[in-house]
Amino acid sequence: MKYEFSITKNPNPKKKPDPDTLRFGTEFTDHMFIMDYQEGEGWHDGRIVPYGPLSLDPAAVVFHYAQEMFEGLKAYKSEDGRVLLFRPYMNAQRTNRTNDRLCIPQIDEDLFVEAIKALVKIDADWIPQKEGTALYIRPFIIADEAFLGVRRSNHYKFIIILSPVGPYYVGGLTPTKLYVEDKYVRATDGGTGEAKCGGNYAASLKAQEEAHAKGYEQILWLDGVHRKYVEEVGTSNAFFVIGDEVVTAPLDGTILPGITRNSVIAILKKKGIKVAERKTTIDEIVQAYKDGKFKEMFASGTAAVISPVGELRYKDEDMIINNGEIGPIAQELYDTIYGIQTGKLPDDMGWTVEVK
């Protein structure tokens, strides 16, 4: 291992949760990783310590100016006992793109991955093996220098926590209901739409709450300028099967460059299925539905992997997609990606990294 981290074992390990009742993001393992950054010294003092509260100054930059970022990936345990990460170097690369946008120091990609490996190895017995479960990994960086004034911080903490999780949506692969949001805006050109930072999600909560009140699990965002181009779902990237083509929004700075999104596109191309990254209006989607060409819709993301959509509501148009059932493309994509992640299918894409 290129990097070495000190380890302080938790003297009071917790009872493991029941894998049959696991929810998403409510249980946490026995340990966490912490590393500090000081201007002029760089990243240093990487350590694994017992999971617990952080002590931060009330004037820490993260509280007042939201200089922070986060990532998300999963670890799985294969039937033969191997612990597998799914494309962690893409998370490291995206971390540095987000860091650049938010004036957070770059972090070496190998350091990022080795820290994850070290922590997952310590808490590997927390990885659930029931179908649809995983160990969710949340790396994040916060600015913790104490001052009041709008400038970048000179001190940061890089932290990783782990959470054994069940399906992100309680229904698993049961198709969800989405509401097309045309009032609020998630991102615009030149903003932070492509960065993975908490502010993007905080700003989206109002729209999500209103959609929930109307009976919808999530929202589909439209572009922030014209309010007509479909962009992404609240927690994931959106795909539409129109005729014989799978369409998704392009990476033009306003949507998150999803790692599962990238994987979906690669698999579709490998299987010879037409896929296009292009701007598509919500009116085109509605017309395709009326013409009988709107065959499937699904979202992709680390949390849910593939989430089929059975209903899409835009203004007065209520579109029931594929009779409210999961479509064949969404099912095949889930089976393929989840199969590679868990080692049930051969990884002919070179995507998994084993924790040893």
Score class of each variant (00 low, 15 high):
Ala134Phe: 03
Leu135Val: 03
Tyr136Gln: 03
Tyr136Leu: 03
Arg138Gln: 12
Pro139Asn: 04
Pro139Ala: 08
Ile141Glu: 05
Ile141Trp: 08
Asp144Arg: 00
Glu145Trp: 11
Ala146Leu: 06
Phe147Trp: 02
Phe147Gly: 06
Leu148Val: 12
Gly149Leu: 06
Val150Leu: 14
Arg151Thr: 15
Arg152Thr: 14
Arg152Asp: 14
Ser153Gln: 03
Ser153Pro: 01
His155Ile: 10
Tyr156Glu: 06
Tyr156Pro: 00
Lys157Leu: 13
Ile159Pro: 13
Ile159Glu: 12
Ile160Leu: 11
Ser163Tyr: 07
Val165Tyr: 01
Val165Asn: 11
Val165Ser: 11
Gly166Pro: 10
Pro167His: 15
Tyr168Val: 11
Tyr168Met: 12
Tyr169Pro: 07
Val170Phe: 08
Gly171Asn: 11
Gly171Trp: 09
Gly171Gln: 11
Gly172Ala: 11
Leu173Gln: 13
Thr174Ala: 15
Pro175Ala: 07
Pro175Gly: 09
Pro175Ser: 09
Thr176Leu: 14
Leu178His: 11
Tyr179Arg: 09
Val180Gly: 13
Asp182Ala: 13
Asp182Tyr: 12
Lys183Tyr: 10
Lys183Ala: 02
Tyr184Gly: 02
Ala187Cys: 06
Ala187Ile: 01
Asp189His: 05
Gly190Pro: 04
Gly190Asn: 09
Gly190Thr: 05
Gly191Ser: 10
Thr192His: 06
Gly193Gln: 05
Ala195Asn: 01
Cys197Val: 06
Gly198Glu: 04
Tyr201His: 03
Tyr201Cys: 02
Ala203Thr: 06
Ala203Glu: 12
Ser204Asp: 05
Leu205Ser: 11
Lys206His: 14
Ala207Ser: 10
Ala207Trp: 04
Glu210Tyr: 09
His212Pro: 02
Lys214Ile: 00
Lys214Thr: 01
Gly215Tyr: 07
Gly215Pro: 08
Tyr216Leu: 05
Glu217Trp: 00
Glu217Ile: 00
Gln218Ile: 08
Leu220Lys: 01
Trp221Arg: 04
Leu222Pro: 12
Gly224Thr: 11
Gly224Ser: 07
Val225Ile: 13
Val225Phe: 11
Val225His: 14
Val225Gly: 01
His226Lys: 13
His226Ala: 07
Lys228Arg: 13
Lys228Cys: 06
Val230Cys: 13
Val230Tyr: 11
Glu231Phe: 02
Glu232Thr: 00
Val233Trp: 09
Val233Ser: 10
Gly234Glu: 07
Gly234Ile: 03
Thr235Leu: 00
Ser236Cys: 15
Asn237His: 10
Val241Cys: 15
Val241Arg: 15
Val241Phe: 13
Ile242His: 13
Ile242Gly: 04
Ile242Trp: 15
Gly243His: 07
Asp244Lys: 12
Asp244Pro: 04
Glu245Thr: 15
Val247His: 10
Thr248Phe: 05
Pro250Cys: 06
Pro250His: 06
